[in-house]
Design a binder for these strands. Structure first.
Lengths: 291, 291
DNA sequence: TCCATTCCCTGACTTTAGTCAGAGATCTTG
DNA sequence: CAAGATCTCTGACTAAAGTCAGGGAATGGA
């Protein structure tokens, strides 16, 4: 990561907060406190539950309650008990509230148009292509420890095995491979992590303890649609952080020769190829990293 | 400008304000009110005058004064009379203030790093290339009416004539071309506009009244470094807005065959080629647009 | 020299934003 | 059904952000 790259990213960040951040502050508020405006936006046409709003906007319960009361007296929203749970409250926009939301929509459109309009047809295509690229590359990947038995974890593992079967020259039969039962991916024997993009699972990975100082990386997988934006690297970094906290000094992993991207990732992150340390039948390359 | 493009731009804007806007709010503040933090950032190592700060940050005079007083009691800044004008005050960071600024710098770096670090070498290059592209295409071009006799206007016009001389197959001698004296580019006879990027002049254009309903576009020029990001289009749109406010219904212009980009711009903005309406010796194409 | 203007400051506000400690309903679990 | 947990609301705060109306010093032009 050289200084030129960092400078470019910083210049970009500065420009964008000025150009686009203006939206939040001037466009979106429209004479209304920003908090209320954001709230209307977050409630949306479909309505929402108060607790969900609190979580999404990260607001204090009392504060949110007061904001809702204010919108209610402006008759922009209607608050009712949730049908299934009497403690929860459901918020919905009134017709007036929906009109307000539509205005925000138009203003967002106008900002977008003001960015496109000075450009010619070719420039516009270049702009949206570049934006899509930036978007793809900086999407916030969240990596969290989860149980390997969870629904999303299972889904990732199934995808993973499916992909191995498709890509290995010999196909892939889990029964013939060295086993890694769930118990070995649950603390304290190991961990399993799931990577998410906007809430949807897009990758996974596991760390398994071998002995007091050695761990093994397993089950590294990224959904095809999310490749190239750092999901696997982030999963690996998360597993390594866990390994460090466990005071492991050596990490090992093995991989098949058809998984070229994986090998590039491992080498890039400081893994060096070593002699085979196990008899995994589907492995062609064995790697190790000293922490 | 189709809906898909607008959607992409809006998605991008939303994502970016979340990812990057976090900077302003969490990174930059560091236990200090955001207003003070921004102020330190804006003063910078070079110092600044109070009036300039007020203009740049758009703050109320009383509010800014109080912020400055607060930073002064924290001994982060020093305020003195400006040497040349006793009414103005000059603000400078103390050593402690500069240390604080350096911290913000490091935090900005860290944010940039956090965007780059999950990517591999190739991904990083792609990200900064895409960011540079977006940056180039959405830079805020400001177009303002200025006197054609101003220093920047003169500079633009010289560049313009220089470029004509270099590009026309026959060279260019202003004396042989139809004249457009300064007086005809000053209201009410006409207007002259200068386009600026970050304050620096990067283009110009003029509108001249022919009769009660007809105007003529002249002196359209964009600095080579700023081409492709909509400077000329914005200049043209500004001149057209003026023409409309003057109730002109027809706009004319002529151009040389070597200026292909210009012709593409005119056609794209709704100008149609017409028969020669004057005897400009350097012109090959004559255009007209009904408003 | 006088007078309008510019610039910065002070005092006296208001509005937003956000926090914290309960209270009162409602649900879940043993 | 009792006990504990969850959810929303109210009251009582504080801090930050921003506005408005002058006032005094310095300047520039008539």
């Amino acid at each position: 990561m050289d200084a030129r790259q960092i400078q470019q990213v910083r210049r970009f960040n500065r420009l964008i907060t000025q150009r686009v951040g203006a939206l939040d502050h001037d466009y979106l508020r429209r004479g209304r406190p920003l908090g209320e405006a954001r709230l209307i936006y977050e409630i949306g046409t479909g309505g929402a539950e108060v607790r969900a709003l609190r979580a999404r906007l990260g607001l204090d319960s009392g504060y949110l309650s007061r904001l809702l009361r204010s919108l209610e007296t402006q008759s922009l929203i209607r608050v009712r008990k949730a049908p299934d749970d009497g403690r929860l409250r459901r918020v919905e926009l009134t017709a007036k509230g929906r009109a307000e939301l539509a205005t925000y929509d138009r203003l967002s459109d106008r900002l977008a148009q003001s960015m496109l309009s000075p450009l010619g047809a070719a420039g516009r295509e270049r702009l949206i292509a570049a934006m899509a690229e930036v978007e793809h590359l900086i999407r916030a990947v969240e990596v969290r420890v989860e149980a390997p038995t969870g629904a999303d974890a299972r889904w990732c593992l199934n995808q993973y095995f499916g992909e191995l079967a498709a890509r290995f020259e010999t196909g892939f039969d889990p029964a013939k491979s060295n086993p890694a039962p769930d118990a070995e991916m649950i603390p304290p024997a190991g961990v399993f992590v799931v990577a998410r993009l906007d809430g949807a699972a897009v990758g996974c990975g596991a760390l398994r303890r071998i002995d007091r100082t050695t761990g093994e990386i397993k089950r590294m997988w990224t959904a095809p649609a999310a490749r190239g934006c750092g999901v696997a690297r982030k999963v690996l970094q998360t597993l390594e952080a866990t390994a460090r906290s466990w005071r492991l000094t050596t990490l090992r992993l093995e991989t098949n020769r058809t998984l070229a991207e994986a090998q590039a990732l491992y080498r890039g992150e400081g893994y060096r190829e070593v002699a085979a340390f196990n008899d995994e039948p589907y492995a062609h390359h064995w790697f190790e990293k000293r922490m």
